[in-house]
């Protein structure tokens, strides 16, 4: 093998040369180590995008509630009868209201509904509002929710974060007679890693016109 027959001292690196190499190696390690401090944060390199001004903000509108008028709620048909009078004392709901689950604190029908004008909602000060303004009724008690809802934090908005957006009113999400959310059926769970397997290959026919 090479070197075997040579003078044994010939291949030995002079001491000072070894020192130079050692120092050089150390210096490299130190420089790399120190540069890690600089490397921690990567400068943001991105495309040279042309300036693009913020698009115009749009109006925030409430999702329109269905127009409900007195004719739509033919309450007077029954409630005019003497044995079916409305009253302020809570009692068992029957007949048409049998299916209504009333679970909204201690509230009773007449806290919100007006027996004379069933197409309107009654606020605490006895003034009447339309059904589409029901949020005014809700926020009498849930006053803390009002600024959050206005800010778009309580409740749900759809459309644009910048541009026209639609606010859902309280009753879009909450059933006013029993406001807490119920449960819903979840969508299917993700596949576990061992369930993700090679899909059956589409042989022959090329799907979706893939060329």
């Amino acid at each position: 093998m090479p070197g075997a027959g040579n003078d044994p001292g010939k291949d030995r690196l002079p001491g000072n040369q070894a020192t130079i190499w050692g120092t050089l190696g150390l210096a490299v390690v130190v420089i790399v180590g120190l540069s890690a401090v600089r490397l921690e944060h990567q400068p943001e390199t991105t495309r040279d995008y042309p300036p693009r001004p913020l698009i115009a903000d749009g109006p925030a509108v409430m999702k329109p509630a269905p127009e409900i008028d007195d004719e739509y709620l033919p309450c007077r048909d029954c409630h005019t009868s003497p044995d079916r009078q409305t009253g302020p004392i809570p009692r068992e709901l029957e007949y048409e209201h049998e299916d209504t689950e009333l679970a909204h604190g201690n509230l009773w029908c007449l806290h919100c509904h007006d027996p004379e004008r069933p197409g309107r909602l009654r606020l605490a000060d006895s003034s009447l509002v339309k059904f589409e303004d029901s949020w005014q009724l809700c926020t009498q008690c849930h006053a803390k929710k009002l600024p959050e809802w206005r800010a778009g934090v309580h409740g749900k908005q759809t459309g644009h974060w910048r541009g026209p957006k639609e606010y859902q009113t309280c009753v879009e999400c909450h059933e006013p007679h029993a406001p807490p959310f119920g449960t819903i059926e979840p969508k299917p769970r993700p596949k576990r890693p061992d369930e993700i397997i090679q899909p059956a290959r589409i042989s022959g026919e090329e799907q979706h016109g893939d060329s």
Binding site: M1, G3, A4, P8, G9, D11, R12, L13
Partner: peptide, 14 residues
């Protein structure tokens, strides 16, 4: 082989 110039190993460095 090279730093300590130890012959027997230097033969097999290749």
């Amino acid at each position: 082989a090279y730093v300590y110039n130890w012959g027997p190993i230097r033969d097999v460095v290749l």
